[in-house]
Nucleic acid binder design. Structure first.
Lengths: 257, 257
DNA sequence: TGCATCAGCTTGTACCAACAAGCTGAGCAA
DNA sequence: TTGCTCAGCTTGTTGGTACAAGCTGATGCA
């Protein structure tokens, strides 16, 4: 009958109770010692079971406090609207979206000249290790880390648009700035994948165990070649990316709210 | 100096050695007892460290065999090309893509009439729990589970397209079938998110610890209302979704291969 | 030769013990 | 009242032990 190992039974029982509302999001689970008594198992076995739930992102633990059922509030990102001249990118769409949602945006910004990593060089069609401008952005919503965004521009582009290396923000947006120089972004290629965060990503995004990152790579093209490559990392549990394709007039009709 | 707990030092050291090629993808790590000797730590501590790497998706373990460095082979999905009348969906694009990649596609298929889940009902603009046709697809590549796809059609649509409830495949594709009835899909709305798999998903996709799922929801619209909602789950480590937006003629120029 | 068995490796499960470290509220002191 | 300390809760870390269970290659029998 009871072929499942005990720590798995513990995890399954707790998961059911989380699902059926016995422990709603934000509430605390019983302590390890209480669970130990309830399931007649050692503390180690209980910890094994709880650890399963943690790595699945259902609960989080903190020393001294206990285990808490996680609650997410998903943030919507409209990826197909981001980039055109009406709505230039580079923080504008982000700040607007966040403010409209009644949240407070905040970002730190950094510019450097670095060798292009292989992944980026491939997409920009330049030599691996050749120089590129990196504009790096670390974004927060209500002071919670939200995403990191690293945009690389190939070196040949800098000769035409020297302001790309300026340390500050480009007020009108980089897309619009480049367009004013006759370099227009006429299309882009998006790649989306998911994986567990590297320690570096976990640090920047303050991600605990059991939360994957969404990786979004956007390569922008002018008429004749790639002009930038943006790699954005999001907390997977707090973000959802949206694409609108074709005629969606039926979607907004009678939309509640 | 050495503030990091020992099990973390073990994980970090092994991660570095994986990154720098000491243990390339597919190779085996030393056994727990060997590592125990090397790091002068108990087996429990070593297991704690290894468990970190497992939940981060860097290595996988199996009883009797040991720990193996994972290797992924990413599969590209062109999401913006999937759905139009030239390339109808429902397995066609999947089979074509997989065959073109020199792999062997295989899928199981199921049709049922069920109450629409809340998530789907919201998108189809029907009452939660009202009946809907579910066409469910479990897809494999070279006999490895690849994705599950659940498409819901609202009940009112079935009255116009009764073949939707047929248990078998619809040869010409559902999109084309519906178009032949005058119900044309003129646009769609995509939502993409990532999270850790539920036990059910882990079972269907044979996902081990440390691998997230990519969730792809596509809602298709006719001129006046939503006509279907497709939820696809992928192994996050084996798939990458692509979107092409705008003019990308520059992308394919001089493309190798 | 061919096949079954088993020793000896591996990880998995389960228990015990002890102390470190973080948090909270009670209670005392200024 | 305000602020500090500390007892007593929580989880985190590390050590130990024992046996179960899966895999592989060597051994030896038919």
């Amino acid at each position: 009958m009871n072929k499942q190992p005990k720590y798995r039974q513990v995890a399954d029982a707790l998961r059911r109770e989380i699902d059926n509302g016995t422990y709603p999001p934000g509430s605390r689970l019983p302590s390890e010692s209480e669970l130990s008594a309830r399931f007649d198992a050692s503390r180690n076995t209980i910890r094994n079971g709880l650890n399963l739930l943690v790595t699945q992102g259902l609960v989080s633990s903190s020393q001294g406090l206990g285990y808490e059922v996680t609650k997410h509030e998903v943030f919507e990102l409209n990826a197909s609207r981001f980039e055109n001249l009406e709505f230039p990118q580079n923080g504008d769409a982000y700040s607007t979206d966040v403010t409209n949602a009644g949240r407070r945006p905040h970002q730190t910004f950094r510019v450097e000249l670095t060798p292009a990593p292989a992944y980026v060089a491939e997409r920009l069609k330049v030599e691996e290790g050749s120089r590129a401008v990196l504009r790096f952005c670390h974004r927060f919503v209500d002071d919670v880390p939200w995403s990191t965004q690293a945009t690389h521009y190939p070196e040949w582009l800098v000769e035409q648009g020297p302001r790309l290396t300026e340390p500050g923000d480009i007020a009108e947006g980089t897309t619009r700035y480049l367009a004013s120089l006759g370099i227009e972004q006429v299309g882009y290629f998006d790649e989306i994948s998911a994986r567990m965060p590297t320690p570096e990503e976990a640090r920047l995004l303050e991600i605990g165990a059991g939360v994957p990152v969404l990786l979004w790579t956007r390569t922008g093209f002018s008429n004749d070649r790639p002009i930038r490559c943006t790699v954005t990392t999001f907390r997977g549990d707090l973000n959802r990316m949206n694409y609108e394709i074709g005629d969606l007039s039926a979607r907004s009709e009678n939309e509640p709210q």
